[in-house]
Each structure stands twice: as C-alpha cells, then as structure tokens.
C-alpha cells in the first residue's frame, strides 16, 4: 500500500461531476456524503485514473452516489448492481470495479447476487452502507433492522433477527471483509484503500446514520446523536476478542475482520482455462 499522506480537503471537488447541482439530494447530515468523501480521498491517494475506475450501483439513497462521482458509472436495476459489475469486470479485467450499495439493495433484493459474487471471489470492491432501514421509500424495515427496533413497517418493534453482512460474506467465500462506521472516517478510508488494492471480492460494511427515518423512530432524531452512538457502541476487533458475547450485545465490531490473500480469483482462473484451451490442451 502506498504511503498515506495528509491531503488538502479540496481534492474531493476535483472528482465531482461538474454538471450536477450541489448540494446533493441526501438529507442534512446523511452518512452517505461522509462515505463518498472517504471513497474519493482513497481513490486519489491510490492514484487511479478516472478511466480505470467504474462505479456500479442499484437503487436507493446510497445508490445515488455514482451520479455525483466523475468516473465510469452504471446505475442499474434494484439489487442487481453486483450482477452488472460482474459483467463489467469480466469484459474489462483491468478496470477497478466499485459497487456502492445499501443494506436493502445488497441483502434483500440482491441477496442472491451478493452471496454468489462472494462465492466466485471476483475482484470487485463492494461498499455496503448499512443504515438499518429502507431510507428512500419511507423507512420500512430492512434485513439489517435490529430486533426490537422500530420502523414504519414494524411499529411495535421488529420481531425478526438481523443479518450480519460481514459474517454472511465471510461464510460465502469473500476474501476481504471489513467493517467501519461513519464516525471512524480515517479508518474507513484506509480500509477502502486496502479493499481496492486487494485481489478478490472485498466487502467494506460502513455503519451509517439514517436519522430521518431510523433515528426519528428510535429516539435518535438528529445526526449528532446517531454519529455519537456509533462512537460509543463501536469496539475494535482486538478488544472484541477479549469480551464475552453478552458484553458484545448491541456493539459493532469494527476493523478488518477477514483477509485471505491466497484465495484464487475468478477472472484469473477463467483466463487459465482459456489459455489451456487456446493452446489445444485439455482443461484440468
């Protein structure tokens, strides 16, 4: 990884689409903007050219992000961002494909695409912004809404258990899994850089605030209260290993949870088969 250098904050402005009107469509204080800034700074530090990067997204608040980013962009069907991204990566193996997706987009509507992208270990960086709720459509409960939490479809408290996207990705075969929050922005930035440099499927789950719907129904109605609750409830991985499961209830374990550099990558394996067949040999 290259040397991390302190940078002026105006690098962000160079990577925004010039014809888009700002400020963005997101609510005041939305965590999506913080993640977008961290992503731009990570790409700038790694020194990628704009033509090398492709941002793919589905539908949702989070998926509005590639609209503002001045890279190759694909704004696709709901939940199918990873399927389209697989096609982009397959056609252009040298392109850095970044999927920006929300919790409902990746885990409910696109749940199958998510686990199969993990299983293939294709070289895509997925940034999953988890705000515990469907924000754009009016605050319905999503697969990551915690048990007991309130939303517009669970007005008496959620009875379902929540998904753990990091555990799901790791079990399905992703080779880089990390979690961060919008409060821990420098850590998130370094994690996105590590994920972009990693060869194989990499997932960065970012816990973000939706104070407009999730916060308002759960007694955290302003962005400051929600961001400070991430500060209080986040536990670094090293400390979490010394804690009991009871102590970890309601906490977010942050850090690089899983990394496997030896795992074989899908495009490389496919190219090997192509090379053998083109030379006239038999595969395997």
């Amino acid at each position: 990884m290259p040397v991390v250098e302190k940078q002026r904050s105006d690098v962000i402005l160079q990577y925004l689409r010039p014809k888009k009107k700002f400020p963005s469509v997101w609510c005041p204080g939305c965590g999506n903007g913080i993640v977008m800034g961290a992503l731009i700074r990570a790409i700038d530090k790694l020194g990628y050219k704009r033509d090398e990067v492709c941002c793919v997204s589905g539908i949702g608040c989070t998926s509005r992000m590639p609209v503002y980013l001045d890279f190759n962009s694909l704004h696709t069907a709901h939940g199918r961002a990873l399927a389209f991204a697989t096609g982009v990566k397959f056609a252009q193996p040298n392109m850095k494909v970044i999927v920006i997706t929300g919790d409902g987009d990746a885990l409910a509507i696109g749940g199958n695409h998510f686990i199969h992208a993990c299983r293939r270990n294709i070289d895509i960086t997925t940034i999953l912004i988890n705000n515990f709720i469907y924000g754009m459509t009016g605050g319905q409960g999503s697969p990551t809404t915690p048990a007991g939490a309130f939303s517009t479809t669970t007005p008496y408290g959620n009875v379902e258990k929540q998904f753990d996207p990091c555990g799901l990705a790791q079990a399905a075969g992703a080779s880089f899994v990390g979690r961060s929050t919008v409060f821990h922005t420098p850590q998130m930035e370094k994690m996105i850089m590590a994920a972009l440099e990693h060869k194989g499927f990499s997932l960065v789950e970012v816990i973000a605030n939706c104070h407009t719907y999730y916060g308002r129904l759960n007694k955290q109605g302003d962005p400051v209260a929600m961001v400070n609750s991430f500060k209080e409830n986040a536990v670094m991985l090293g400390k979490a290993q010394t804690m009991t499961p009871d102590q970890l209830k309601g906490k977010y374990v942050i850090g690089t949870l899983h990394e496997n550099k030896e795992a074989t990558e899908f495009c490389d394996e496919y190219q090997k088969v192509v090379d053998v067949r083109m030379a006239g040999g038999k595969a395997r």
Binding site: S9, P28, G29, V227
Partner: peptide
C-alpha cells in the same frame, strides 16, 4: 472529514 456535503475546505 465528517462534512457530508463537502462544504468545508
């Protein structure tokens, strides 16, 4: 770093 609208430079 925490400004969601890039208003602070």
């Amino acid at each position: 770093v925490h400004c969601p609208d890039f208003a602070i430079v």
